[in-house]
C-alpha cells in the first residue's frame, strides 16, 4: 500500500460500515494520483454527513421536523443540566443558611430532571408522544423549581423547558420518526452544566470564565458544522434563543434600559443566534446535492 493510499484509506474508514468503503477508496485513487486537500475535505464531510444522518434526502418539511427534533434534544440537555445544578446541593452556604424551602426546591428540581431525561430518551428513540407528555409535564415542575430564585423566566436556562415542550408538541405531527442512541444526549448533560449558561458560576467559580470561552467555541463549531449538516446550527441557535428570551424579558419586566449598555448586551446575545440561522439557511440553499 502506497503512502497516498494509506492516507486516503484512513479517511475512508471514517465512513460507517454500511457505505462501500473499498469502492470509495478505489474511486478516489483512480481520480487522484496524489493526496489532495479538496478530496480529503470532501471525504471527511461525506463521512460526517453519513455518521450524523445528514446524508438522508429530506423534503423541506422533513428537514424542518428533523431540525426541530435536534433542537428539542439540545434544549432538553440544557434544561436537564439546569435541573442537575438545582437538585444537587452545590450551594453549600445557601443550604446551611437557608431557613426553609431549599430542600423542597431541590426535590422539585429532581422531579424536573427525571421528566426532562424521560423526554430526552423518548425523543431520541422516536417515542414522540411520551416525549411530549414528559416535556409538557416538566414545564410547571421546572417553573416551580426556578421560583427558588424569584422570577423564573428571568433565570438562566429557564426558557429551555418551554421551548423544548413546544418543539416536542410540534414533533407529534412529524410524518417520520427518527431514532438514535440516547447515550450521546445523556452524556452531554454533564459538560452542559459548565459549558452552557446555567448559572453554575454562582457555585462553581471557574464556570463564568469557561462559559464565555465555550459559548464562543460552540458558535464557531456550529457555524463550521453548517457545511456538513444545516440542522446543527439551528439546534445551537435554539439554545441561544433561551438567553435572548431571558434578556428581553428581564428588560421588559424591569422596564430598565440603562445607558445603552443593556441594549448592546442584548444585541450581542442575539447576534450568534442570527448568525447560526443565517448559516443554516445558506448551507441548505448552497448544498451541492
Amino acid at each position: 500500500m502506497t503512502r497516498v493510499e494509506r492516507r486516503y484509506a484512513r479517511l475512508v474508514r471514517l465512513y460507517p460500515a454500511r457505505y462501500p468503503r473499498e469502492e470509495i477508496l478505489d474511486t478516489v485513487l483512480q481520480v487522484n494520483g496524489a493526496f489532495r486537500v479538496r478530496e480529503a475535505t470532501a471525504l471527511i464531510a461525506g463521512a460526517m454527513r453519513a455518521r450524523t444522518g445528514a446524508d438522508v434526502q429530506r423534503t423541506p418539511s422533513e428537514f424542518a421536523f428533523s431540525a426541530a427534533r435536534l433542537a428539542a434534544l439540545a434544549l432538553l440537555v440544557y434544561a436537564a443540566a439546569k435541573d442537575v445544578l438545582e437538585a444537587v446541593p452545590l450551594d453549600v452556604r445557601a443550604v446551611v443558611t437557608a431557613p426553609d424551602g431549599l430542600v423542597q426546591f431541590a426535590v422539585v428540581s429532581l422531579c424536573a430532571l427525571v421528566l426532562h431525561l424521560t423526554a430526552m430518551v423518548a425523543l431520541s428513540r422516536g417515542a414522540h408522544r411520551l416525549a411530549a407528555i414528559a416535556a409538557v409535564l416538566a414545564l410547571p415542575v421546572a417553573t416551580v423549581a426556578q421560583w427558588r430564585h424569584g422570577m423564573p423566566w428571568g433565570a438562566d436556562g429557564y426558557w429551555a423547558t418551554p421551548l423544548a415542550a413546544l418543539l416536542t408538541v410540534v414533533l407529534l405531527f412529524a410524518p417520520r420518526r427518527e431514532r438514535s442512541s440516547p447515550l450521546f444526549w445523556l452524556l452531554a448533560v454533564v459538560p452542559a452544566i459548565v459549558v452552557l449558561p446555567t448559572g453554575s458560576g454562582q457555585y462553581l467559580g471557574p464556570s463564568w470564565f469557561i462559559q464565555q470561552q465555550m459559548l464562543l467555541i460552540l458558535v464557531t463549531v456550529a457555524l463550521l458544522w453548517s457545511f456538513v449538516d444545516a440542522r446543527v446550527p439551528l439546534a445551537v441557535a435554539a439554545v441561544f434563543a433561551c438567553n435572548v428570551l431571558t434578556g428581553f424579558l428581564v428588560v421588559l419586566i424591569s422596564g430598565y434600559l440603562g445607558d445603552g449598555a443593556i441594549l448592546l448586551g442584548l444585541a450581542i446575545t442575539t447576534l450568534p443566534a442570527i448568525a447560526l440561522v443565517a448559516a443554516a439557511t445558506l448551507s441548505r440553499r448552497r448544498s451541492l446535492i
Binding site: I24, T27, E39, A42, G46, I289
Partner: peptide
C-alpha cells in the same frame, strides 16, 4: 461505476461539474 460517473458528469457539463469522491458517494 463511481470513477466513470465523475468523468462522464464532467464531460457532459463541459468541465463545470468536478465531483469530489466524497460528494459523489453522498449523492
Amino acid at each position: 461505476h463511481g470513477y466513470a460517473i465523475i468523468q462522464r458528469a464532467s464531460e457532459l457539463s463541459t468541465g463545470r461539474i468536478r465531483l469530489a469522491t466524497g460528494t459523489l458517494y453522498t449523492a
